[in-house]
Design a protein around this nucleic acid. Structure first.
Length: 237
DNA sequence: CCCGATGTTCGATT
DNA sequence: AAATCGAACATCGG
């Protein structure tokens, strides 16, 4: 479900985690840990304080002083803060108890989402490409990097190692707005300036609408604004 | 009831 | 280098 605007919305809704301390963590699924043993999570994270909450592409980054906890929502993951425990917990995968008695709750219907644990951001940074909101992402960056590749533009934009954060829905919107066919080969695109502007304007507009896509996207306790965007299905693959 | 599709990513294979 | 496929999993709709 979530692409960059949804993930950005989640990150903003979690900003109040800053300076909160982890009391303990309870997990309900072994699968929530991608690159470490979930049984060690308390030993590693208990007592740590959230220094900052940010994101790169679709990855949510919790800076926990010397440790980075990275969350990816994949298709159906969700993450929210709550003063109470969920009533139905069949999709709940992991709960963090915080020192202000709030809970950080991670749920995921399809169990694709989960957490990475790193000592620094080197691995994440080498795994994925530039974020569209990075200061280095410019018109000329895009023009140069399109010209050196010979791939269908939709597939290229889908590639997180190229630009991170874009997915099926927003790429469709972006290409429609630019009036570029998704099958256009990247090196033959003459309107890279327009494409660049479309990427940023679609993402910015979508973040303003709380990152709502085709489906109703919920955030917080599910009480968030839910709108349905009109999308250009012509380009969906 | 069964089959196919669903916003993501990864790895193997051509 | 680029494209294709299948897998991870659960749910929903035709």
């Amino acid at each position: 479900m979530p692409e960059l605007p949804e993930v950005e919305t989640v990150v903003r809704s979690l900003k109040s985690l800053k300076n909160k301390k982890i009391v303990r963590i309870k997990y309900y699924s072994e699968k929530v840990a991608y690159n470490f043993q979930i049984s060690k999570i308390n030993k590693i994270l208990k007592g740590r304080t959230f220094k900052s909450i940010s994101r790169k592409g679709k990855y949510i980054i919790f800076n926990l002083k010397e440790k980075y906890l990275i969350c990816h929502l994949r298709m159906t993951g969700y993450l929210y803060l709550s003063k109470t425990l969920p009533i139905k917990k069949n999709h709940i995968r992991c709960i963090f108890l915080l020192d202000d008695n709030q809970f950080l709750i991670f749920g995921d219907i399809r169990k694709f989402g989960g957490f990475y644990l790193y000592n620094n951001l080197n691995e994440l940074n080498s795994k994925i490409g530039i974020d569209p909101f990075n200061i280095m992402f410019t018109e000329s960056w895009l023009e140069n990097n399109l010209s050196t590749k010979k791939r269908m533009i939709k597939h290229l934009l889908l590639d997180q190692k190229f630009i991170c954060g874009l997915g099926n829905i927003y790429i469709d919107e972006i290409l429609w707005k630019t009036q570029v066919s998704p099958k256009t080969l990247s090196h033959s695109i003459t309107s890279s300036k327009n494409l660049y502007n479309s990427i940023l304007s679609i993402l910015n507009d979508s973040i303003k609408f709380h990152g709502t896509t085709i489906m109703n996207f919920k955030f917080g306790m599910g009480l968030g604004i839910m709108k349905t965007k009109i999308i250009s299905k012509q380009y969906l693959i």
